[in-house]
Design a binder for these strands. Structure first.
Lengths: 196, 196
DNA sequence: GATTAAAGTGAACGCCGTAAACATAGAGGT
DNA sequence: ACCTCTATGTTTACGGCGTTCACTTTAATC
């Protein structure tokens, strides 16, 4: 029962299935891989999968979890690269949207399970990073949570709408939408603009 | 070939299928209805569906379109009830999120097609209302479009995250997130809060 | 009334997720 | 060394799905 990357004929079918799943989600745009297809790719009968996952939904959840971890890592790296602070905060959001566009099928899978994808295990690096960063920016705990959730909703909405083709998946547009300074125009500044 | 609501044995199977589809999407939480199931409900063989829709995707697209129209009507009514202006604008967003929570399966279907659900036909009342309202609020066309898209992304993100159980589908939380005044704290006001 | 095109039917195909019964191999105890 | 047991895999089978094809029926048209 080694978890090492040995041959899997006896070894870790589970990891092989997840790897095949992630690979399938990258290619062949939009199509979620079937359980049988993954088994085929890995060279195993379809029912063998059930020795490692109770059902397809569990397999999907594991894939979603893997995707979530990947996203968390990319965001952490991006935030560090940007040097934290509000600069890093924005960069985290940018990375979120970019991730969705770079891995559309995986991203959809991640957020299309009916329920939060687990709750146990390691508790979602991406979300931890988000709350930590916004707490660092705001101070007031309630305000920090609100900012965190609003930011999440914003980038998630941008990502989803772009994935669904409702708004163009344009880099410039991402930048424009990520800049939330104007959103407050109706509530914190004058309602007239800088144009004459 | 009457479009009137007559018997459908010969008559409008198409509308009957759409009605059955919308009904199915309301009950039995989360599950998207199958083509065969809808045919069964309507009392017709599965293949009869193909006389009215080229494939299942087209049926789904039609259902999505119907959902979009419904959303648009509810938003328009809500905006009018609130008396337009920035009050009506916010109300439109609130209605968007409420609609998603009230019709989760339909809402998911609406935004889960790969592509924008058509583009032809009547051009999406919801979106028209959104841009019109934000143009009324901002004046500057570019700024208006940005505000429109940001607002859309925000409410869409809130809706999606709540549907997926990532954040609690809580009425109070909706209100808190809809109030975007604080979002600009980092760019338009002081970074200190009103608490001592 | 005969013709014709639209609308509905039934059987069949290959895919899917899943269940049940069976096979095999490697670990552990004796 | 042997036997056993458990983890892991296989085969076969079931019902549901979307879709195709060849067919019948029905209502509208000349």
């Amino acid at each position: 029962m080694s978890t090492s990357p040995e041959a899997y004929h006896h070894g870790n079918l589970r990891d092989a299935l997840l790897a095949a799943g992630l690979a399938a989600l990258e290619g062949a745009e939009g199509k979620a891989p079937s359980l049988r297809e993954l088994a085929r790719v890995v060279g195993v009968s379809a029912t063998a999968v059930y020795r490692h996952f109770p059902d397809k939904q569990a397999l999907d959840a594991a894939l979603a979890r893997a995707g979530l971890d990947l996203l968390g890592k990319e965001q952490a790296a991006a935030a560090e690269r940007a040097g934290g602070g509000s600069q890093g905060f924005t960069e985290t959001g940018r990375t979120y949207v970019r991730f969705a566009l770079a891995h559309p099928a995986l991203f959809r899978l991640m957020f299309t399970q009916g329920h939060p994808v687990d709750g146990s295990a390691t508790p979602d690096e991406a979300y931890a990073l988000l709350t930590a960063n916004s707490r660092a920016l705001v101070g007031d705990p309630d305000g920090a949570e609100t900012l965190a959730l609003q930011s999440w909703a914003m980038v998630h909405g941008i990502a989803m709408l772009m994935l669904d083709g409702r708004i163009p998946a344009d880099d410039a547009l991402i930048e424009r939408l990520l800049d939330t300074g104007n959103l407050s125009a109706q509530s914190c500044g004058s309602s007239s603009e800088e144009s004459p």
